Measured scan of single mutants.
Amino acid sequence: VTLFVALYDYEARTEDDLSFHKGSKFQILNSSEGDWWEARSLTTGETGYIPSNYVAPV
C-alpha cells in the first residue's frame, strides 16, 4: 500500500472532494483520473477526491 501525506491544507469545493489538513495521510484508491485522485483518509476513514499536487509519498 502506497501512503501519501498532505503538503498543504485543502478545503473541499464539491461533495465528492475531501477536506484535509497538512500532515494528513491517505491511501490512494485510484490515481488514473489525472490530477484528482480517489483516496481514503487514514485520519477520518472518509473516501473522496484529492488534488494530487497537494500530496507526496510518505
Rank of each mutant, 00 (worst) to 15 (best):
L29C: 08
F4A: 09
Y8A: 08
F4S: 03
D35V: 10
T47Y: 08
E38Y: 15
I50Q: 01
S41W: 04
D9Q: 04
V5M: 07
I28E: 01
G45Q: 06
D16P: 03
E15N: 12
T44Q: 03
K25I: 15
T14G: 15
A56L: 08
T43F: 08
S32F: 10
D9M: 04
A12R: 08
L3W: 11
A12I: 02
Y10E: 00
T43W: 07
F20W: 01
Y8N: 06
P51V: 02
F26S: 00
K25H: 13
Y54K: 06
S32A: 11
Q27I: 15
A56F: 08
F20Q: 00
G45Y: 06
G23C: 08
S31Y: 13
S31G: 09
R40V: 12
A56I: 12
S31R: 12
D17V: 14
L18D: 00
D35C: 14
F26N: 00
R40N: 04
R13H: 11
S41F: 06
S19Y: 02
Y8D: 07
K22H: 06
H21V: 14
T2M: 13
D35L: 12
Y49A: 05
T14R: 15
T47M: 09
S41M: 11
D16S: 14
V58I: 13
W36G: 02
S19Q: 04
S52A: 13
D35T: 10
T47V: 14
P57Q: 08
L18Y: 05
T14Q: 10
T44N: 07
A56N: 05
S31W: 13
E38A: 08
V58K: 04
T44P: 00
S32M: 11
S31F: 15
A6I: 02
A39L: 02
S32D: 11
K22I: 08
N30M: 07
E46I: 08
G48P: 00
E11Q: 12
E15D: 13
G34V: 12
S52P: 07
E15Q: 12
A39V: 14
W36E: 03
V55S: 00
I50F: 01
L18N: 01
G23K: 02
S52K: 14
Q27D: 07
I50K: 00
H21N: 12
R40L: 13
E15M: 11
W37K: 03
F26T: 00
S32L: 12
S19P: 05
N30W: 07
Y8W: 12
D16C: 15
Q27T: 10
Y49E: 02
V1W: 13
V55D: 01
V1P: 12
A12G: 11
S24V: 10
K22L: 05
V58H: 07
E46C: 10
K22C: 08
L42H: 05
F26Y: 02
E15H: 11
K25G: 05
V58F: 11
L42S: 04
H21Q: 13
G23I: 01
D17A: 15
E33D: 15
V5L: 07
F4R: 03
L7G: 02
A56E: 11
T14A: 12
T47L: 08
Y54F: 11
F4P: 01
E33P: 11
V58T: 07
E15V: 12
S19M: 03
E38I: 15
D16N: 15
F20S: 00
E46A: 10
A12W: 02
A6N: 00
Y49P: 02
F26K: 00
T2F: 11
H21G: 09
E38H: 14
W36A: 05
V5A: 05
I50E: 00
H21K: 15
F20Y: 01
P57G: 05
Y54S: 11
L42A: 06
K22N: 04
A6Y: 02
G23T: 02
N53W: 15
I50S: 00
L7V: 07
E15C: 14
R13L: 12
V55P: 00
L42K: 03
T44G: 04
A39Q: 00
I50N: 00
T14K: 13
L29M: 08
T43S: 12
T2G: 12
Y49H: 07
D17R: 15
V55Q: 00
Y49V: 07
S52E: 04
I50A: 00
R13P: 07
A6L: 02
N30L: 06
E11T: 12
V1D: 14
Q27Y: 14
D35H: 10
I28D: 01
E15G: 13
Y54P: 01
E11W: 09
E33S: 14
N30E: 08
L3I: 15
G23Y: 06
G48M: 04
F4L: 04
S24H: 15
G48A: 03
E46D: 08
A56G: 08
L29G: 03
V5C: 09
N53H: 12
R13I: 11
A6T: 03
K22M: 08
P51A: 04
T44E: 02
T43G: 08
A6H: 00
S19I: 02
G48F: 04
K25F: 15
F4V: 13
T44F: 03
Q27C: 13
P57N: 05
G23P: 00
S31V: 11
G48L: 03
V1Q: 13
D9W: 05
H21I: 13
S19F: 03
L7Y: 03
N30V: 08
A39D: 00
L42Y: 07
G45V: 01
H21C: 13
V55K: 00
A39H: 00
E15R: 10
L42Q: 06
S24N: 14
L7K: 05
K22T: 07
E46W: 06
I28L: 06
Y49W: 15
Y49Q: 08
I28M: 04
D35N: 09
R13M: 12
Y54N: 04
G23M: 03
F20R: 00
F26V: 04
T14E: 09
Y8C: 15
A39K: 00
L29V: 08
I50V: 09
G23E: 04
V5G: 02
E33Y: 11
N30H: 08
A6G: 04
I28N: 01
Y49T: 07
V58A: 09
E33L: 14
W36T: 06
G34Y: 09
K22F: 05
S41N: 15
V5W: 06
Y49D: 02
